[in-house]
């Protein structure tokens, strides 16, 4: 084997202005591509979702007499709940990479910690969107949601939720060192964020101790905002503002703060 004389120049010419966004996108594509390596997961989850919707949701909506059209409420909410759950997976991925040493390798790549976390969060969020879009389409067809603008805003809500949850999940993954503690923490967080929300049941029907927290859950912001826009009630600015704040806190502030400490190599 012989090498060409282009050696060394390649590395030095890497960090251009546009290469920064290129590296973020490459990092995101890496996470997105993992989804397509196991397409059967999307197919099986979509089938499970259909069964859940057509068996469980129809059955339950028959029992719920106090709340008219509960099926539609449940259908939209279950998509929102699913995207939140899927978005948490990136944290497990990163924690596993840390345990296997792959994170050490990724941290040696010429990408800043901030770009790294944005790329991973973006990849995790897009992955969750791709994963959930078939379910969203099923619900849209079933409920005859056909206004393109409403659908676009609902998708935007879902994306903001996914982006924020991935930021939260990554922040937890790089903060908690013990595997057991991480599993428990993330599972409890996922439970709290999804269940203490208006994704599957309205605030008025919740016990007081859940109703006290549910309005502040990002899943509530996304579910309420998506329902409002799909049902034609209009833009739920409070919900969107809540989601933006959630993204800013956990992706922008939380993770960046952590990775600013990490920059230079405090990770050990």
């Amino acid at each position: 084997m012989s090498f060409s004389a282009t050696q060394v120049k390649d590395s030095n010419s890497l960090p251009g202005g546009d290469s920064t966004s290129r590296l973020v996108l490459q990092m995101a594509r890496r996470d997105i591509s993992t989804l397509f390596r196991t397409p059967w997961i999307i197919i099986s989850r979509s089938l499970a979702f259909i069964v859940q919707l057509f068996v469980f949701a129809y059955l339950i909506s028959g029992f719920v007499v106090k709340f008219p059209n509960y099926f539609e409420y449940y259908a939209v909410g279950s998509v929102v709940g699913t995207i939140a759950s899927i978005s948490f997976i990136i944290g497990y991925d990163i924690f596993e990479e840390a345990e296997e040493g792959l994170l050490d390798y990724l941290l040696t790549l010429p990408i800043s910690r901030r770009q790294f976390i944005i790329g991973r969060a973006l990849g995790g969020a897009v992955r969750a969107m791709i994963y959930t879009i078939p379910m969203f389409v099923i619900v849209a067809v079933l409920e005859k949601f056909s206004n393109p603008l409403s659908l676009a805003f609902a998708v935007f809500d879902l994306f903001l939720l996914a982006f924020g949850v991935t930021g939260l999940s990554i922040t937890m993954a790089v903060s908690v060192r013990s595997a057991n503690r991480f599993d428990v923490t993330l599972a409890l967080l996922e439970l709290a964020v999804s269940r203490a929300s208006t994704a599957l049941y309205p605030l008025a029907f919740m016990p007081g101790y859940v109703a006290a927290f549910a309005p502040y859950s990002p899943v509530t912001f996304a579910a309420d905002s998506a329902r409002d826009v799909l049902e034609g009630t209009g833009l739920n600015l409070l919900g969107i503002a809540g989601l933006l704040a959630f993204v800013a806190i956990f992706l922008g502030l939380g993770a960046t703060f952590y990775f600013r400490r990490l920059e230079g190599g405090v990770y050990a």
């Binding site: 590395s11 030095n12 890497l14 960090p15 890496r30 296997e100 040493g101 792959l102 050490d104 390798y105 040696t108 790549l109 010429p110 990408i111 800043s112 920059e263 230079g264 190599g265």
Partner: peptide, 18 residues
């Protein structure tokens, strides 16, 4: 750190491959 990373390539003792 970021400028340093642009100069270095590390092959780890235990393979760090996807």
């Amino acid at each position: 750190p970021n400028d340093v990373r642009k100069l270095i390539g590390i092959a780890f003792q235990d393979p760090r491959v996807d």
